[in-house]
Design a protein around this nucleic acid. Structure first.
Length: 268
DNA sequence: ATGGCCGCTTGCAGCGGA
């Protein structure tokens, strides 16, 4: 099985990229962030025609998330949750559902973490509070659904370590890398979640986002801020996790590119 | 050294993103 996450920076602008990518990469699940579409404008028909069911929640202009699941594989979502039940929020940043899979029940949570804008700002305080509440909710889920694995995938807007930053000196203590943000991520990992990408040896300087400005992509001046966390019971089944730079090379790309995880039978 | 793009809007300049 495969699951991917992709911040598309407007699904209206990127729908064809998503459909083309799914045709070439028929993943079981796809989490999208920054759809930037109200629910009445969501391209449900086009996505269903491509063989995927979809759960989505949006708002005007900003944010918006979607969770796609491959119909041919027979997935039926239950326990659907839009946003965090423990956190009142007009911003639409979370979409979740549980699925029965060949590797047992799994709850997928697609997340668009707040950016935070600048360390110490009002938006930064919101970011840290939002993550703390997400941690509380996932802790609650682990108690309520103890036999269900968890995959938390999305745009975390946090580079976990300096190895995930093209130039740590430039970014030092800034937004996306600051101590409190990284500690908040550690709080999530402490629930028994694991950064799937770092379960494996990886070449250096692999990123999932590159600034549109300053030839960021050509210079590989990027960050790894799009993550897939898998829970303890899924960890032994993860066989591969990779970043697909292909879509970032297209005309009018998103500034993020897909991250994919593959799991299945227990690794031997 | 600085900042350089992109998408969105009760829109044509300003905000947010990262």
């Amino acid at each position: 099985m495969q699951l991917a996450t992709w911040n598309v920076n407007s699904l209206k602008m990127r729908l064809q990229h998503v459909l083309d990518w799914l045709a070439a990469n028929p993943v079981d699940f796809l989490c999208l962030q920054e759809t930037k579409l109200t629910d009445d404008k969501f391209p449900k028909d086009e996505i269903e025609a491509a063989g995927y069911g979809v759960i989505f929640t949006g708002q005007p202009t900003y944010n918006g998330v979607a969770l796609l699941y491959r119909k041919e594989a027979g997935y039926v979502p239950d326990g659907v949750q839009l946003n965090n039940p423990l956190y009142e929020d007009v911003q639409r940043r979370l979409v979740s559902a549980r699925f029965q899979t060949a590797a047992g029940p799994v709850r997928v949570i697609g997340a668009y973490f707040p950016n935070g804008q600048a360390v110490g700002s009002e938006k930064y305080v919101y970011k840290l509070g939002w993550i703390a509440s997400l941690q509380e909710w996932i802790a609650q889920l682990r108690r309520e659904e103890p036999d269900t694995g968890v995959i938390l995938a999305g745009d975390f807007n946090i580079a976990p370590a300096d190895a995930d930053v093209h130039d740590p000196a430039v970014w030092a203590d800034g937004i996306l890398v600051s101590g409190p943000e990284r500690e908040a991520l550690q709080g999530l990992l402490a629930l028994g979640l694991h950064d799937a990408f770092r379960l494996f040896e990886q070449p250096p300087k692999l990123f999932s986002w590159w600034d549109y400005r300053a030839l960021g992509f050509r210079r590989n001046a990027g960050l790894r801020i799009d993550l897939i966390l898998v829970s303890d019971e899924l960890k032994p089944m993860v066989g591969r996790c990779w970043i697909d730079k292909g879509p970032r090379k297209l005309e009018k790309p998103s500034d993020h590119t897909p991250v994919v995880v593959e799991w299945g039978a227990a690794a031997t």
